Computed example of a mutant assay.
Amino acid sequence: MSEKIKGDFREKIGKNLKNLIEEREKENTLRKLDASIGKDHSWLGKVFKGQQNFTIDSLADILIQFKIQPKELFDFVLEFDSKKKKS
């Protein structure tokens, strides 16, 4: 996967995650959110911006904490370079 596509993937996940959490926790600040999942606020902010790589376990912790279904998070399409051959 190209670096651009990987970056787009992280950005879309981060944006969806931020929006889904905000829908459920409108009154909480970012710092309160980090405390509830045990991560530093700068880490979570970077995830939201697509700048931070994360583990499946970290993602699962967030989804469980905020009762987010994986299908809600991954509701997006990636644009692939159509010129490259598929293998």
Rank of each mutant, 00 (worst) to 15 (best):
Q69V: 04
L63H: 07
Q52H: 07
K39L: 09
G14P: 09
T55Q: 05
D40N: 12
N16D: 03
L30H: 05
I37Q: 01
N53C: 06
S42N: 07
G38N: 05
I64G: 01
L30C: 10
F54V: 11
L20F: 00
A35E: 12
E22K: 15
S58E: 15
E23M: 09
G45Y: 03
K15D: 08
K26E: 15
I64C: 05
G50M: 05
T55H: 02
L17W: 03
K15G: 03
K46Q: 14
N53S: 14
D61Y: 01
S36E: 13
E25D: 09
N19F: 02
E27L: 15
K39R: 09
L20M: 01
I64S: 10
T29E: 07
N16E: 02
K49Y: 03
K26G: 14
E22V: 10
K39A: 06
N28K: 15
K67L: 12
I68H: 07
S42M: 06
I13L: 13
G45V: 01
E27R: 15
L59C: 10
F48H: 04
F54E: 06
N53K: 10
I62L: 06
K49V: 01
N16G: 03
E22A: 12
D61M: 12
T55W: 00
L17T: 04
K67N: 15
N53G: 13
A60C: 00
T29F: 08
L20S: 01
T55G: 11
N16A: 04
E23Q: 10
A60H: 10
F54C: 13
E27V: 08
I21L: 12
R31Y: 06
F54M: 15
D57F: 07
N28H: 11
G50Q: 07
G14M: 06
E23I: 08
N53F: 01
N19A: 14
F66V: 12
Q51K: 14
D61G: 09
